[in-house]
């Protein structure tokens, strides 16, 4: 009897052990391990990936968003995208870095202030970035930092109840961040209008230059000369929703506490679906600085743009221009300040 049972058990084991489905395994379409993929992540990694995926779902709607993943991506990124597929995202496999929502995910080993090892996941999905550190012990995982959100100001709810009850409640929050260095690396986008050509001659004659490069590495025209600006077509599609002037001290690019408060107010009022933030940095009048009025005007708008990016405003949502001249601009523009505007698409 015992022998028969044992034989049956061994038979079952034998067949079970022999059953195989190849490297592709059996999984759901785009939801499980696929052909040639590495093994699914462990429990701790799954929990961390789920944490980031839940945050992303609040920023990019699953049913209407397709994410791109490069062929040969790391298993961690594959696992994350499988999780997104389960949530209803479209998944597109690309041979390079194509797409508006291209996914990259990095895992970094860190050390806490007390010397304990931490894991930090850094996710990029198009222009949105999410990053968070975790304390991992075996299969148990706890957040070790707030959730850093970049490239967006959308509200993100952080629910840490899936972690252990001992999770620090102080960490269940979002920190909006921005990478201002990335702005510097963008290829220059130059203007090639007739006005700019004329502006070169004007500059040579000692008159204020006609164009210069803004914080986003886009060449813009000097609004002092009275044209419609480099973003005329874009501005035509938008309506003014709010406007204020951030005043700077003479020959200064310091934003100051009042300026910072005003920038924060505009960041709070910014609606990502419909808004852009317009900046016009101004320096009209005499200056003792070597960078001249042009450098001062665009330096001021750059200072405000950086403050907005650090608060999570997407750089693409900022259009900064300038107005500069060694003489006053009358009522049209402030002498030393930045005009900040919320520009809204009509309903």
């Amino acid at each position: 009897m015992v022998g028969r049972r044992l034989a049956l058990a061994l038979l079952a084991t034998s067949f079970g052990g022999c059953a195989h489905v190849g490297p592709g395994g059996h999984g759901s379409v785009m939801g499980g391990p696929g052909a040639g993929e590495a093994q699914a992540p462990g429990t701790a990694e799954s929990v961390m990936l789920d944490d980031l995926a839940r945050a992303l779902e609040q920023l990019r709607t699953p049913r209407i968003t397709t994410v791109q993943l490069s062929r040969g991506a790391e298993p961690l990124a594959e696992a994350f995208v499988s999780r997104l597929a389960e949530a209803g995202y479209g998944v597109q496999r690309v041979d390079a870095d194509q797409g508006a929502h291209h996914v990259s995910l990095e895992r970094r080993a860190l050390e806490s202030a007390s010397g304990s090892p931490l894991v930090r996941l850094e996710l990029e999905v198009g222009t949105v970035t999410l990053a968070r550190s975790y304390r991992v012990a075996g299969e148990a995982v706890q957040p070790a930092s707030a959730l850093a959100v970049g490239g967006t100001r959308r509200e993100v709810g952080v629910d840490d109840t899936r972690f252990r009850a001992t999770t620090d409640a102080e960490l269940a929050r979002v920190e909006y961040v921005g990478d201002v260095d990335a702005l510097e690396q963008t290829p220059l986008i130059s203007l090639i209008t007739d006005e700019v050509v004329h502006g070169v001659a004007r500059e040579a004659s000692g008159a204020p230059s006609h164009a210069a490069v803004n914080s986003g590495r886009v060449e813009v025209t000097n609004l002092f000369h009275g044209d419609s600006g480099a973003f005329g077509a874009l501005r035509e599609t938008l309506e003014l929703a709010d406007r204020a002037i951030i005043v700077f001290a003479n020959d200064s690019m310091r934003l100051g506490s009042d300026g910072k408060r005003l920038v924060e107010r505009f960041a709070e009022g910014f609606r990502e679906d419909s808004d852009m933030i317009g900046l016009i940095g101004c320096s009209n009048g005499k200056t003792a600085l070597d960078i001249g009025n042009e450098g001062l005007a665009l330096g001021r708008s750059r200072r405000v743009a950086e403050a907005l990016v650090v608060l999570g405003i997407p750089p693409e949502a900022i259009i900064d221009e300038g107005c500069w001249a060694p003489v006053g601009a009358g009522d049209r523009f402030p002498s030393r300040g930045v005009v900040i505007e919320i520009l809204r698409r009509g309903s």
Partner: peptide, 28 residues
């Protein structure tokens, strides 16, 4: 018997289905 079954049943290498399965997972 188990040993024989293993020799018979497991000797054949697992068929690699990766050339045909969807990259994002499929039904082997």
């Amino acid at each position: 018997l188990f040993g024989a079954l293993c020799v018979i049943g497991c000797a054949a290498p697992a068929r690699d289905l990766s050339p045909w399965l969807p990259l994002g997972g499929g039904d082997a």
